[in-house]
Design a binder for these strands. Sequence first.
DNA 1: CGGCCGCTTGATTAGATTCAACCGTCGTGG
DNA 2: CCACGACGGTTGAATCTAATCAAGCGGCCG
Lengths: 229, 229
Amino acid sequence: MVGFKPLHSCQFCLNELDQFFIDERVPLVYNEENHPSPIYLKRNDLIFSEGKFPKGIYRVHSGFVKVYKHGDDGKEQIIQICKPGDVVGFRSVLSEKPYNLNAAALEENTVVCFVSKNDFNVYRETHLKLQNRLIQELSSELQESAEFITNMTQKSVKQRTAIALLFMHDIYEDKPINISREDLANMVGTATETLIRLIKEFKQDSIIQVKGRKMVIIDMGALRKEASL
Amino acid sequence: MVGFKPLHSCQFCLNELDQFFIDERVPLVYNEENHPSPIYLKRNDLIFSEGKFPKGIYRVHSGFVKVYKHGDDGKEQIIQICKPGDVVGFRSVLSEKPYNLNAAALEENTVVCFVSKNDFNVYRETHLKLQNRLIQELSSELQESAEFITNMTQKSVKQRTAIALLFMHDIYEDKPINISREDLANMVGTATETLIRLIKEFKQDSIIQVKGRKMVIIDMGALRKEASL
DNA sequence: CGGCCGCTTGATTAGATTCAACCGTCGTGG
DNA sequence: CCACGACGGTTGAATCTAATCAAGCGGCCG
């Protein structure tokens, strides 16, 4: 169960694409107005939103980005969390369809870098290796998506909460997990109140430590157990 | 809400890939033992299963194929339904990872055609247009997958049942929907008993007609309404 | 004819949502 | 400087949806 990838992680460490960002001098990159500067974001600042046509792709420089969808009642369902180095928004560029998701900063002081659709496409079409790598990456993500769907439909809220915590622990690389209860609930796909009660349970069972909004996992084994059964 | 694509449909009507199947003389195609014959399947016969490495791709010739994942408790979650003309199993070939899903015939007398991984890859690498088309297709499917996830997490079982019925109606092209209650429940992600009760409700509300296992939608408008709210 | 499988129904239970209220903190404006 | 309000977090109680358990039905096949 180690290496279990519960929620989509936009793990975009493609050598070929990294090369692209080096070639294009990211992160000292051009923003949408062609100014050579990164984009600074506050918590919940939008990067792109549903229905709009993509102008380019965004690489997370620091902080985290949530990619989510609004349900009918307005509740957010978080589909993926992107961390520094990940690229967000490229699927819509590739599919040539409008965004069907929203992306926003998960944390204060998130910085992303913009690369125009055109620059990306030109590079892409002249680097066959990248094309192949993209096909492989997209197929993998599609495979993971089936995993994710099965987790969401078949696991209990408690299991999903455990999975989300393990995922965030990974993302935060052993630093305390710092995420709003609401965002975490939207990852898990449950009500905020329910999530809080489960966090409390895990705390009482000495599986995690909670200080304010920050959480530290102290018993990985127990949490993994909760996640799978 | 028309054209709403609730569950993944492996809508693989890529001109370039169709060309491939013409070139390769599918459906009079080679099976896994290199015999020039299609594969005949009974209901629930496996086409491929989790953990195995892909040997090639399969094109549905007649009948339907379900692609599903086993949850921890053994319950199936159906991820997609493939109809004649659709291609199944190509994602694992492209990602170069083992299958993480199972595929099986949904109906008696389902026929699929096999094309070896090698034939597919050779063709693919010599037809750049197909490469681009694949990237586009995979990205689109990934976008749809977000839609699907949001539906599964935020909609009620009743709404999801309505969505599944609309989808099956589409698949069956106005012919009566013919699917086991269990399979339908596994599409919706609910217990068989719950599904049956909802079918009964829709029947009592004169939204569908039920004759044995076959179902006909008689009030599309009402069903669409149920689906979205 | 018997037994199995898919389908159906009823009753009970459990898990999660919803509603309501309260607390503490932070930022803003009087 | 303090008061106020907004917001995120937390708790309790009531409600509801859907799962589970149990049982019966009908048809089909061996």
